[in-house]
Amino acid sequence: MINISLLMIMVATALGLVWLRNLLAVVMFSGIFSLTAASLWVVLGAVDVAFTEASVGAGIATVLGLASLALTRTEHEKRTRVFHLPALIVVLVTGAALIYGTLDMPGWGDPDAPIHTHVAPRYIEDSLAETGVPNIVTSVLASYRGFDTLGETTVIFTAGVGVLVLLGRGRRYPVANPRVAAGGGPGRAPAAPGSEGAAVPGDSGEMRFKAILRVGGKLLIPPILLFAFYTQAHGELGPGGGFQAGVIFASAFILYALLFGVPMARAVAPASVLRGTLALGVLIYAGVGIAGVLLGGNYLDYSVLAHDPVHGQELGIILIELGVGITVASAMMTVFFVFAGQDPQQVD
């Protein structure tokens, strides 16, 4: 009942996303979509996924969407009302093929489905004895599927590096950056009449007088950081882990940057430090694997890290989760600082 209602809300939100032309509203609605998806994961019992969806999809993605909107300087999608028949046919055929593909899938909750008979029983029965970690999601993610997670962490690292390479020098050499230069050129789309976002750039000094927000935000930052550490440390016992903790940790800095400006936040977390920690996390992860090889095991086999295999597994999982958390936090902070740190006055 709750499932169906949430799915209907998701469909309505998705249709709204297609229908809306105001890009600010689109960004906000994608946040709503993520929130609905996250509550659906909770209802279905996938709390770790819900945790990630809530922190990444509803939080960071919204903030980054707004930051990129600020860089493009346009709030309205261009209206193209051309009826394109081949495109419609392609979409319909693909959709029909996808729906046809689902017909062969086993029913929801079917105990004989391959996913419930292949490796899942082994994880459920043996993972606690083999790794000593009560949260099966964490033991699968960090130990059994350690290679996959190393790949994911590397993807996040690469994303951070990519943003740095493309936009990282935008503030120092504003004209050398084609994207920013195009946004500030004479041909840029004028702000739509009546849009509340068309404030004069540079009047953000007003933020100085938002005393309640600033004091309230400052008071919130320590609990947010503490909660990030709790999520990091608690990932073995309950929902949580490096990905979520990294995002929550970064969101504290993003909150600070929103309230006091990116230059102030940059003073707390300098670019040179973030570049180092961005690589450090992946290095820790890969280093744990190398340490396993040196101690006579396979790559990313944690059993050889300590005298007791179970203890070694726990140690390895804690270390690689730490690496994931460091890289994710640095990547999120880097991307936000670079996106939001483009000074509109310098860009103009």
């Binding site: 600010l24 903030v63 707004l66 909107l69 976002g197 940057a257 929103l258 309230l259 400006g261 006055q345």
Partner: peptide, 16 residues
């Protein structure tokens, strides 16, 4: 906070 700041100042990074 990000949405309201964007709606008021049209960017997120300030004050610079």
């Amino acid at each position: 906070i990000a949405v309201t700041k964007f709606a008021k100042f049209a960017h997120l990074g300030g004050p610079f």
